[in-house]
Simulated assay, not measured.
Amino acid sequence: MQIDILSLFPDMFEGPLHASMIGNAIENERINVDVTNFRDYTTDKHNHVDDYPYGGGAGMLLQPQPVFDALAAVQEKHPAPGRVILLDPAGVQFNQRVAEDFAKEEHLTFICGHYEGYDERIRSLVTDEVSLGDYVLTGGELGAMVMIDATVRLLPGVLGNAESAPGDSFSSGLLEYPQYTRPADFRGMKVPDVLLSGDHGKVDDWRLAQALKRTYERRPDMLENLPLSGKARQMLADLQDESTEG
């Protein structure tokens, strides 16, 4: 996968993109990441990339010319444009489903804004407008890092265990079940007996029940319209009955 990032602060990506999983993915040539400073493409003699909004208002807006020209240069090097993603608080909220969708692409380009916002014409360049959440950051760089991390870990060969990603919270539509490792008894806190039983069927049932319980208690909104197996529906009904009785 080719990942391009357009940003006024390329140094922000130096650490996060060269450590841990993403760093390994780059080293193993699973992905290639290029960061472009679109200030390098401004034609303004003072190197400005922003200006006051027409009609007045607070703050400054990113001008279209540097972004248009920087993106054109990126797409000249990589003719298959793939998805062009604008980091914007007004965009669709990023979640696991969006990450899974992005992971299917061969080329992703992230445009990181700054200042008060974008000249509206920049939106004509993009395929997706995405927000990290219902809050405002100083710029789009941190949001791009999170989206890249969530996406890259889904690519084949990036995680050491191929079963890790499908079992993550949100991948199944449920929060992840509790997990334990050695020792079996730590300061009186014991691993559930079922996990030590060696009975894979019972372990699977326990994990499903725990995932449903955790989701029901912490994120009941996730269960709305979630397709469940007959076994899962019965487990959920039992949870609801217990809650009502309690």
Rank of each mutant, 00 (worst) to 15 (best):
I5H: 03
L8F: 03
F9Y: 05
F9I: 03
F9C: 07
D11F: 08
M12R: 13
E14F: 02
L17D: 02
H18N: 09
M21G: 06
I22G: 02
I22V: 12
I22W: 01
G23H: 04
N24W: 11
T36N: 05
Y41M: 09
T43W: 15
D44K: 01
K45W: 01
K45C: 00
K45P: 07
K45S: 07
V49S: 02
V49W: 00
D50P: 03
D50S: 01
D51G: 03
P53E: 14
A58S: 15
A58V: 11
G59F: 02
M60L: 05
L61R: 10
Q65G: 03
P66Y: 15
P66K: 14
V67A: 04
V67R: 00
D69C: 01
A70F: 06
A72T: 07
A73N: 07
A73L: 03
Q75G: 09
E76Q: 12
K77E: 02
A80R: 04
G82H: 08
V84R: 09
V84W: 11
I85E: 04
I85W: 11
L87G: 08
P89I: 01
G91W: 06
V92Y: 12
V92N: 08
Q93I: 13
Q93C: 09
F94N: 00
F94I: 14
N95F: 10
Q96Y: 13
A99E: 02
D101Q: 13
A103Q: 14
E105L: 03
E105P: 02
L108K: 07
T109A: 01
T109R: 12
I111D: 03
G113W: 04
E116C: 04
R123Y: 10
D128C: 10
G133W: 10
V136A: 06
L137A: 09
G139C: 15
G143H: 02
A144M: 05
M147K: 11
T151L: 15
T151E: 00
L154I: 06
P156R: 07
A165H: 07
S169G: 09
F170K: 05
F170T: 15
S171R: 12
G173V: 07
E176T: 08
E176D: 15
Y177T: 08
P178C: 04
R182A: 09
D185W: 05
F186S: 04
V191N: 06
P192D: 03
L195T: 13
L195H: 08
L196W: 13
S197C: 03
H200C: 01
G201R: 09
K202R: 13
W206Y: 04
R207T: 07
L208R: 06
A209W: 11
A209Y: 15
A211S: 08
T215S: 00
D221L: 12
M222N: 04
M222C: 11
M222D: 15
L223N: 02
L228M: 10
G230I: 07
K231G: 14
L239F: 07
D241C: 04
E242I: 13
E242V: 12
S243H: 14
T244R: 10
T244D: 10
